[in-house]
Amino acid sequence: GLTEEQKQEIREAFDLFDTDGSGTIDAKELKVAMRALGFEPKKEEIKKMISEIDKDGSGTIDFEEFLTMMTA
């Protein structure tokens, strides 16, 4: 499992990506986040990433899903 410290770091990354503070990361926010990390993702790639992570089919990534992605 994760230490509380690791969870906190992932939470901070999540909050950075969640620019509108909605508690979820949408495609637009993910794209901005990827760019910040030096990637140039295409729209299809973003969609694919979200569909792989987005277990509940909401079209957005919540913290639990993000946590799973970061620790996979």
Rank of each mutant, 00 (worst) to 15 (best):
G1A: 08
G1Q: 08
G1F: 12
L2G: 03
T3A: 04
T3D: 03
T3F: 03
T3H: 02
E4N: 12
E4A: 13
Q6R: 15
Q6K: 13
K7V: 13
K7F: 12
Q8W: 12
Q8P: 03
I10C: 09
E12P: 02
E12R: 15
E12W: 14
A13Y: 10
A13P: 00
F14G: 00
D15L: 12
L16A: 11
L16K: 13
L16Y: 10
F17H: 04
D18G: 03
T19Y: 14
T19D: 09
T19R: 11
D20I: 03
G21T: 03
S22C: 08
G23K: 04
G23P: 02
T24E: 06
T24D: 04
I25Y: 01
D26N: 08
D26P: 13
A27S: 09
K28N: 12
E29G: 13
L30N: 00
L30P: 00
L30T: 01
K31F: 14
V32R: 15
V32P: 08
A33D: 00
M34W: 10
M34D: 01
R35F: 09
A36K: 09
A36G: 05
L37M: 05
G38R: 03
F39D: 02
E40P: 03
K42R: 08
K42D: 13
K43W: 15
K43M: 14
E44Q: 06
E44W: 10
E45G: 05
E45R: 04
E45Y: 10
I46N: 01
K47E: 15
K47Y: 05
K48A: 14
I50A: 06
I50K: 01
S51T: 05
E52F: 13
E52V: 14
D54H: 10
K55C: 09
K55H: 09
K55I: 08
D56K: 12
D56H: 11
G57R: 04
S58F: 07
S58Q: 09
S58R: 11
T60M: 09
D62N: 15
F63Y: 05
F63R: 02
E64R: 07
E65I: 09
E65M: 14
F66T: 00
T68G: 09
M69T: 03
M69A: 05
M70T: 02
M70Q: 00
M70C: 11
T71N: 04
A72E: 08
